[in-house]
Amino acid sequence: MNIAILTENLKKNYKYTKNKNILALDNLNLEVLKGDIFGFIGPNGAGKTTAIKLLTGLIQPTGGKAYIFGELAGSIRAKKNIGYLSEIAYYYDFMEVDKLLHFYGSFFGISKIKREGRIKEILKMVDMTEKINSKIKDLSKGMLQRFGIAQALISNPPLLILDEPTSGLDPIGQKEIKDIILKLKEMGITIFFSSHKLTEVEHICDKIGIIHKGKMLTQGALGEFLKQKEPFLKLKFSFSLPPSLEVLNKLNLPETLKDNLLCEITVHQKDLNHFIDKLRLENAQIISIIPEISSLEDTFFNLIKEGEKNESS
């Protein structure tokens, strides 16, 4: 089975009163392949946590189905293949780190001796070996999140589901968690994680899905979203002397660049050679030519805007 996560028209409707319904997830179709690092992104309230809760069996779908390695999400067999980290750490705070890890690990039928070895291994991986005997309540927020990853890894699961793993952490904490995820990526674990931090997703993920108001707007390989903004290029060049108005006019450059030694402009690909020739004639020096790449942020905002436009029309 090459598919780690598959959802078919997954739907979740929260019914509060007779007249108050909230459609948190609307026919979500998702496919995450084994070995993928899938970033599930969307603004707050988009339905990310709802989808994750459905995958882990914490809530029941109103419609549709979800499968984890071919097993129905929420079933015992599906849960055996998942390591789950919730958005905020909720653990028995009166317990010690190793005792709680033993406790969580025992549900996977791992023998005590094997668990001991595994606990040492994962605590080393998340860099909290020295906290093995600390009580959960004495851990800092960053440590707690690392513990969260450790408890998710206790059974050595082929799939990790992380709900906003860097949420509420300071930049150092965020970096540490990001590094741990990258380490796990190298180990070949399939990771499905939700976030609204686009740079984080850009750094870590191979594939992404963008969700907004319960609907999946798009999904695919990260590269597709970062493709070149055809056919524009960013050209950086410098003059040995501040350019006069005449030179600027010759080059079709705005007058505001007068007296600037260093200039940066965007040119169309077809005009590039001609423009460079003109620059050379003016003794300008080319510093760099970089194709304009659309960032994930661009894609994200365009899709969200488009989605909202469609909704209002």
Binding site: T56, I76, K79, S86, Y90, Y104, G148, Q151
Partner: peptide, 14 residues
Amino acid sequence: EQKTIYPLLAKPLR
């Protein structure tokens, strides 16, 4: 309420 049930029920526990 304290959500300690989350990590527990996400494990293979009925």
